[in-house]
Design a protein around this nucleic acid. Sequence first.
DNA 1: CGACCGATCGTCT
DNA 2: GACGATCGGTCGA
Length: 206
Amino acid sequence: MSKLPRSFYTRENVLEITEELLGKFLVTKYNGKITAGMITEAEAYGGVIDSASHAFKGRRTGRTEIMYLEGGRAYVYISYGIHHLFNVVTNEKDIPHAVLIRAIEPVEGIDLMLKRRKKKQPDYTLSSGPGSMSVAMGIKVYDTGTDLLGDKIWIEDRGIKIPQKKILRTIRIGVENSGKDAHLNYRYIIADNPWITRSSFNRIKE
DNA sequence: CGACCGATCGTCT
DNA sequence: GACGATCGGTCGA
């Protein structure tokens, strides 16, 4: 049960970091109330050379500026005008790598997650999918830039190691028109965990 | 269960 | 002025 140190995030291999984030625990604390879940699905975004990244070709705007900070911060932005998508910034300052957290398995504060999602009973849609996950955890776009070594949003290692053979790599979602890198296997999934995006789970079942 | 579609608005061109 | 790193509802088979 230890908070991931800065050195976890500042490494240069974003694929390695994405894979290692599976099985780690994302925790938020708002108004003293904790919600937490185990990361089950995440996507790597490779910065300036990745045509699917917001920072492709070194694009710097008010929104993407966060990605150029030192690793270990939250990059949150709005998608489709509705959804707040939570990313972890990685690598050193000026290298805009990021990992999109797409799904978690709820562990703590499930009552609060249900309230935020306006649901009565937990089901696999509670926190599977980046927009739903953010709602369940209470993460909003104004959390962008939050230091993950602070006491508001952080990621913990609770001693769980996902075996290599249970990790599935596949293409990222929603980037099919993003050019040369649309086909890269940059999405990492815990294959036997039902708390992942529904379409993925159905596909894995065969 | 898969395909389609509307919602909704900040960001970038 | 167009378009998403999406979601949830509906429709048809």
